[in-house]
Amino acid sequence: MTALVVALAVAVLLLAVLVAGLLRSHAEILKALHELGAGLELDRAEGPVDVTIDGVRRPRRSSSAETADAVSGQTLEGEAVALSLTTGTDTLLAFLSSGCTTCGAFWEAFAEQQVQVPGDARLVVVTKSLDEESASALAKRAPRHVPLVASSSAWEDFGVPGSPYFVYVDGTGRIVGEGSAATWPAVATLMGQAHADDAHRNGRLSREGRDDAALAAAGIRPGDASL
């Protein structure tokens, strides 16, 4: 009997040591991931954050409309800009910050001369306005060949919950996908999927649907006086 009790006590002790070791290694893994900047910096977002990193979200905006005409703001060179999202060219809006750890991977990826953007979309980086951002820090990170617009109002218009965040807009100003991930290849995959899904849906559009799309491309929306 005594031997059984001793054996059980030893077994419990060994299990306790094993559990403690597992907990410690788990904590070390989490700490290492945090130091590497993994995870989204969405903790600064106001209100609930509805972002998935393993799929493309259903397009959503702060306003009721799911279309966007333009992004207006300022460049780092002091130029006033109003970039149209309805010129017929798809646009990928990359909402980034200079101080966000996760954004670092995107600044580096965009520094490559030939950034492969899904759907051959135009890549546009959108930061907060320069009274809320560091112009010098942005100048160090932002590649010259990628358009950058500093516009806090764009962040509000698109209901951006935090950085990094991406919105794919087709050439008629229609938002076809949005969301976030920790790396550019992951974002490119998600946005490529959104673009492909949209193309697939459009491929099955009726003639009426294609006519609507053509009218939207010409700037004529439902309720337009010319109709």
């Binding site: 005409d69 333009a70 460049t75 060179e77 002091g78 130029e79 006033a80 800009v81 109003a82 970039l83 149209s84 309805t86 010129t87 017929g88 010409a218 700037g219």
Partner: peptide, 8 residues
Amino acid sequence: TGWEARAR
């Protein structure tokens, strides 16, 4: 709609 502009 469809226009974009830059000024400096």
